[in-house]
């Protein structure tokens, strides 16, 4: 079994009288991309802040890189990369200078800067000052800064928010490459399609509690409806149950030469979310 690189056990947090995280339990094996899903205000960013020691839990246990988070050393944090919801680069410095600065603070060579600029689609914009960059360019530059030291564990808080579809696809491709290299990624998003595309496992957060946690395909299967959609030549499309009566109906349609197609009716991740939480995004 792969060792867990990050875990939470019965973690709770309250702000004054309001409980914002309630009994969170999950663990992430090394090399996995773990999605933390939920609508705005569900507690995703708060969870990242707990995991990166920006906040302190009220109860429970958090393990980071194999040791209690309270005992994590500065050297441990050198193995982590973080793109937070407020990550910002220096406005009077160029994109490339910002990346070189972060490479220097991390004690790594500048050699990766051109590669990161290329991968983030910023190769032609390296000399552009951050203050002259669009929101999408800033986001990609901040992501590159979080990756400059090749972290083992990467926290990404809504990394594709504000990106156009092409840039979003580029980031997804980058996440795929990180996975191939064995980087563990903890990603928050409210984009279910994104989670489906890049995550090995997802946890669905609702009102501060985990409502479901599994691989996207397993969740879809678990919440799959017990029916198929049948398309016919003259009778249109209709649903049939996955039982003996449904099988008899299909058999009859085949014999009558009516059957055009049969489709399973699995929910997508967004529909699973609605099913699990009973709310909309």
């Amino acid at each position: 079994m792969t060792a867990s690189i990050l875990s939470m056990e019965a973690v709770s947090l309250s702000f004054k009288d309001k409980r914002v995280l309630d009994n969170l339990t999950f663990s992430i094996p090394r090399g996995q991309t773990f999605g933390f899903l939920g609508p705005s205000g569900a507690g995703k960013t708060t969870t990242i802040k707990l995991l990166t020691r920006q906040l302190v839990k009220d109860a429970g246990r958090i393990s980071l890189l194999g040791r209690p988070i309270e005992k994590a050393s500065p050297a441990d944090y050198e193995r982590i990369g973080i793109l937070s919801d407020t990550s910002a680069l220096y406005e009077r410095m160029s994109i490339a200078d910002n990346l070189r600065f972060y490479a220097r603070t991390r004690g790594v060579s500048h050699g990766r800067v051109p590669y990161l600029l290329e991968r983030m689609g910023l190769a032609d914009s390296g000399k552009t000052l951050i203050k002259n960059c669009s929101k999408g360019m800033r986001q990609r530059a901040a992501l590159a800064a979080a990756l400059v030291h090749q972290p083992e564990l990467l926290f990404l808080d809504e990394p594709t928010s504000g990106l156009d579809p092409a840039a979003r696809a580029e980031v997804h491709k980058m996440l795929g490459e990180l996975k191939e290299r064995g980087t563990t990624v903890f990603i928050t998003t409210h984009d279910m399609a994104e989670a489906d595309a890049v995550c090995d496992r997802v946890a669905i957060l609702n009102d501060g509690a985990i409502a479901a946690c599994d691989a996207p395909d397993d969740l879809k299967l678990r919440y799959a409806r017990n029916r198929v959609v049948i398309r016919t030549r003259t009778r249109g499309a209709f649903e049939a149950a996955k039982d003996a009566a449904g099988a008899a109906l299909v058999d009859e349609l085949i014999r009558a030469g009516e059957l055009v197609s049969i489709h399973s009716d699995e929910p997508n991740l967004e529909e699973v979310f609605l099913e699990v939480t009973g709310r909309e995004f």
């Binding site: 990166t52 920006q54 500065p74 944090y77 050198e78 982590i80 973080i82 937070s84 407020t86 990550s87 910002a88 680069l89 220096y90 406005e91 972060y102 603070t105 991390r106 901040a142 800064a145």
Partner: peptide, 14 residues
Amino acid sequence: EKHTLRTLMLANVS
């Protein structure tokens, strides 16, 4: 104000 201090601290700079 521009959140660069927080970003620095998240990059393990005290």
